[in-house]
C-alpha cells in the first residue's frame, strides 16, 4: 500500500525536513535545540545545551581586523562551474588596475580552490606556519589568500567536514594581515552551506557591501541561483547584481553566435526582472578566457578589446559605482 507524505505518521523525519528547511531557529536563537523543527536534528543536544548561543569572540575580532577594509564583496552562485572564480579574479585585476587602490582576493572555496592557478600562483606555498598570516602579492596592490597555498601538492585533497572548513575561514578572516584595503573580494564555493553561513556570520559585526551573483543562461543553473538569492535574503546580505556568464559563443571563424547554454526560461534577464534585481551584464563565452585562467594571466590585459573584456569593464564599473554610492549613503546616515 502506498501512502502520501501527509497521510503517513511514520514519516516524521521527512516532515522534519520541511520544518528544518523553513524553520531552523538558528544555533544562536533562544529556541535553538528546543523548537519543533529541532526534533531529529543531530545537533539538537548541542544547540539545547546553550553552548552555541554565546557569540563567537572571533566575530568581534574579525570586525576590528576588517575595519580598515573599505569595501567587502562576496561572489556567490548556487551553481558550480559558472565562473565564480574567473569572475572574482578578473574583478580583482580590474579594480587593482587603478594603482591607487589596494585590493585583496580571498578564496573561501576550501575543497576546490581555483584562485591560485587563475592568479598565476599555482605551486606557491606558504612555507612556514607563522607566515600563514601573510597573503601572496600578485602585484604591489593585489593580495591573494587561498587554502591552495597551504597544500603540499596539487593532488592534496581537503577532505574536511563543515567545522574544520569553518575554522579555516575564521583564520583567513581574523589572522591574515590584509592591511589597509579598498576592496576585499571573497570567492565562494557553490551551494548554501557551511562556508556561506560561516562567512556571513564571521562578517556580521562588520559592514559588507553586498554580493555579486554569477549564473549561466540555462534554467538548470538559474534554479540553483534562485536558491542562492533566497539565501542572501534570509541572511540579509544585499545583492549588488547578477552577472550572466557563458552567454552565447561567437565562432572565431564565421562570427556567428551560438547559444551553447540556451536561455530556455529567459536567462538571467528574466530572472532579474522577476525578482527585481539589477542585471550587471552578460559575458560571452570566449576560449581565450579559459586559456588565460589556465595560464594564470589576466584576460582583461591579454585581449582588452574583446567583447568579453568590454562586458567585464562595464560590470566592474557598475560594482564600483554601487560601492561608492553605498559609502556616501553610510556617511550621510552617520
Amino acid at each position: 500500500m502506498e501512502l502520501s507524505l501527509s497521510q503517513c505518521s511514520k514519516l516524521t523525519w521527512t516532515l522534519n525536513v520541511h520544518f528544518i528547511v523553513l524553520d531552523c531557529p538558528g544555533t544562536a536563537s533562544e529556541q535553538a535545540g528546543k523548537s519543533e523543527s529541532c526534533q531529529g536534528c543531530p545537533n539538537q543536544q548541542l544547540c539545547a545545551s546553550g553552548a552555541t548561543k554565546a557569540p563567537d569572540p572571533a566575530i568581534a575580532e574579525i570586525g576590528a581586523k576588517l575595519s580598515s577594509v573599505k569595501h567587502k564583496i562576496l561572489v556567490l552562485s548556487g551553481k558550480g562551474g559558472v565562473g565564480k572564480s574567473t569572475f572574482s579574479a578578473h574583478l580583482a585585476h580590474a579594480l587593482a588596475s587603478d594603482n591607487t587602490k589596494e585590493v585583496a582576493l580571498l578564496d573561501v572555496d576550501i575543497c576546490g580552490p581555483s584562485i591560485p592557478r587563475i592568479m598565476g600562483l599555482e605551486g606557491e606555498q606558504v612555507r612556514h606556519a607563522q607566515k600563514r598570516s601573510k597573503p601572496f602579492y600578485v602585484d604591489d596592490n593585489l593580495a591573494v589568500m587561498s587554502i591552495g597555498f597551504l597544500l603540499s601538492s596539487p593532488d592534496d585533497a581537503v577532505i574536511w567536514r563543515g567545522p574544520k572548513k569553518n575554522g579555516m575561514i575564521k583564520q583567513f578572516l581574523r589572522d591574515v594581515d590584509w592591511g589597509e584595503l579598498d576592496y576585499l573580494i571573497m570567492d565562494t564555493p557553490p551551494g548554501t552551506s557551511d562556508e556561506h553561513l560561516s562567512v556571513v556570520q564571521y562578517l556580521s559585526s562588520t559592514h559588507v557591501d553586498g554580493a555579486v551573483i554569477i549564473t549561466t543562461p540555462q534554467e538548470v543553473s538559474l534554479q540553483d541561483v534562485r536558491k542562492e538569492i533566497r539565501f542572501c535574503q534570509k541572511v540579509k546580505l544585499p545583492i549588488i547584481g547578477v552577472v550572466e556568464n557563458m552567454s552565447g559563443f561567437v565562432c572565431p571563424k564565421c562570427k556567428n553566435t551560438s547559444q551553447i547554454f540556451p536561455p530556455t526560461s529567459g536567462g538571467a534577464e528574466k530572472m532579474c526582472a522577476d525578482l527585481g534585481l539589477p542585471l550587471l551584464g552578460r559575458v560571452p563565452l570566449d576560449p581565450r578566457i579559459a586559456r588565460s585562467c589556465d595560464e594564470g594571466r589576466s584576460f582583461l590585459c591579454e585581449v582588452p578589446d574583446s567583447p568579453a573584456a568590454k562586458a567585464y569593464q562595464t560590470i566592474v564599473q557598475s560594482i564600483q559605482d554601487y560601492c561608492s554610492n553605498r559609502a556616501t549613503e553610510v556617511q550621510r546616515a552617520t
Partner: peptide, 10 residues
Amino acid sequence: DEAVVWRGPK
C-alpha cells in the same frame, strides 16, 4: 526556490 541552508551534520 527555497534554499537548503544546512551545515554538514544535517
